[in-house]
Amino acid sequence: MTIPKIELHLHIEGAAPPAFIRGLAQEKGVNLTGVFNEDGSYKFEDFSQFLRVYEAACTVLTGPEEFGRLTTAVLEQSIEQGVIYTEAFLSPDFCGGGDVGAWREYMHAMQEAAAKLPEIEMRGIVTCIRHFGPDKAKAAARCAAETAGDFITGFGMGGDEMQGKQGDFAYSFHMAREAGLRLTTHAGEWGGADSVRQAVRDLEVERIGHGVQAIDDDALVDHLAEHEIVLEVCPGSNVALGVYSDWHSHPIETLRERGVLVTVSTDDPPFFHTNLGMEYDLLGHHFGWEDDTVREVNVTAAKAAFCDDATREKLLKALEPAS
């Protein structure tokens, strides 16, 4: 598929190629027993184990230099899939432990690595980790607010959606909003439709990470459509983790038909044995998506991107059909 692609939901650590993490572990003499299957892929059976393996893999990412190398490896994967713009979730908890000074060094390393790859534009969404609690979220929000600008353009929240409520983190989201950052949060992946409602009501986000369980609440679906709240949908991730049993059960097409603005992303692609090209191929196979739909979804992503207007216009121009 030659249509340029835009990805809005990608965790930088979760996109790390397994070989990259194994190589770092060997360099540092770190034992990552239990992290990989015999074939070298990441090893997990459910969401809680996925989080543990994810965080274990992150233990070899201990400095700005490693995150610069990681950024290069991740973006090179994206370029291979025809991605021309990506927004990556970047967590100060993994990059300096929430200290603003240390975070700046990590951020600069990632920004410099991204700048060396002109084929793709990257922006960072600083992300707090929900199961680390509201106090650590405030430190992440402070890092975001202090470095808001051309590269850091958004603030969001990932982690275990079953811990606490969206509103517990309202202070951090308010801090980020005051700094001019755009807002998104994970909801409706595991927390049900009500978690999406909480996110919209209590955090006033303009995008929702996943959000697919909104399908269980007709009034909420109508609200999302009416208010043009964009869903960052990751179908392959949802199926791999068992949110939905198979692709046929996934609600992305029903949501789109109901007028909800949906985009397509990979979340943590090596964990789920996917890439953005595969996602679109499977959407075509299961839901009949053809070029017009793929282009429409990527235009939605360009319009919803947390970037400056000049970058947005460039993306939209790249998505125009060839005359």
Results as ranks from 00 to 15, higher is better:
Arg177Phe: 08
Phe173Asp: 03
Gly124Met: 06
Arg123Met: 02
Gln111Ile: 02
Asp168Lys: 05
Lys165Gln: 06
Arg197Glu: 10
His174Trp: 12
Ala145Leu: 01
Ala176Val: 15
Gly158Asp: 06
Gly158Ser: 08
Ala179Phe: 03
Lys116Asp: 13
Leu117Gly: 00
Ala141Phe: 06
Leu183Pro: 05
Phe151Lys: 03
Phe169His: 02
Ala114Met: 04
Ile152Gln: 02
Lys165Pro: 01
Gln198Arg: 08
Asp168Val: 03
Leu203Val: 09
Gly188Phe: 00
Arg197Leu: 13
Pro118Ile: 05
Arg201Tyr: 10
Ile120Glu: 03
Phe155Arg: 04
Ala199Arg: 01
Gly188Tyr: 00
Arg142Gln: 13
Ser195Phe: 00
Cys143Ile: 11
Arg182Met: 13
Gly154Gln: 06
Met175Cys: 08
Arg201Trp: 09
Cys128Pro: 04
Phe132Met: 12
Gly164Ile: 08
Met175Lys: 13
Gly159Tyr: 04
Glu119Gln: 14
Ile152Phe: 00
Val200Pro: 00
Ala109Arg: 04
Asp150Glu: 10
Thr184Pro: 06
Pro118Arg: 10
Leu181Cys: 03
Arg142Ile: 05
Thr153Gly: 02
Gly167Trp: 12
Gly188Ile: 12
Thr185Phe: 03
Phe151Val: 02
Ala109Pro: 07
Gln111Ser: 15
Cys128Val: 15
Gly158Leu: 08
His186Met: 07
Ala115Pro: 06
Pro118Tyr: 06
Leu117Thr: 00
Gly159Ile: 07
Trp190Glu: 10
Glu146Gly: 04
Gly133Glu: 10
Ala113Met: 08
Glu121Thr: 15
Glu112Lys: 13
Met110His: 10
Arg130Gln: 14
Gly133Pro: 04
Gln166Glu: 10
Gln163Trp: 07
Arg182Ala: 14
Thr127Cys: 15
Met162Asp: 00
Ile120Phe: 04
Leu181Gln: 13
Thr127Pro: 10
Glu119Ser: 13
Ile152Gly: 03
Glu121Gly: 09
Cys128Gly: 06
Ile129Met: 14
His186Pro: 05
Gln111Tyr: 06
Gly159Asp: 01
Ser195Val: 11
Gly154His: 05
Thr184Asn: 12
Gln166Leu: 05
Thr184Ile: 03
Ala170Gly: 06
Arg177Gly: 00
Arg123Val: 14
Ala176Tyr: 14
Gly188Asn: 08
Arg123Cys: 01
Asp135Asn: 11
Ala170Phe: 14
Leu203Ser: 14
Val200Cys: 08
Ile129Gln: 11
Gly156Glu: 06
Gly124Ile: 03
Gly188Lys: 06
Met110Thr: 11
Met157Ser: 01
Ala148Pro: 05
Lys136Ala: 01
Phe173Ile: 02
Glu119Trp: 03
Lys138Pro: 08
Lys116Asn: 14
Thr153Phe: 00
Gly154Val: 12
Gly167Asp: 11
Lys136Met: 00
Ala176Thr: 13
Gly159Ser: 02
His174Lys: 09
Ala109Asn: 10
Ala199Pro: 04
Gly191Pro: 11
Ala114Ser: 10
Gly149Phe: 01
Thr153Asn: 05
Ala179Gly: 09
Lys138Val: 11
Ala144Ile: 15
Ala114Lys: 05
Arg130Ala: 15
Ala187Ser: 07
Val126Ser: 00
Gly149Arg: 06
Gly192His: 07
Phe173Leu: 04
Met175His: 08
Asp194Tyr: 11
Gln198Asp: 12
Gln111Val: 04
Arg197Gly: 13
Gly156Met: 10
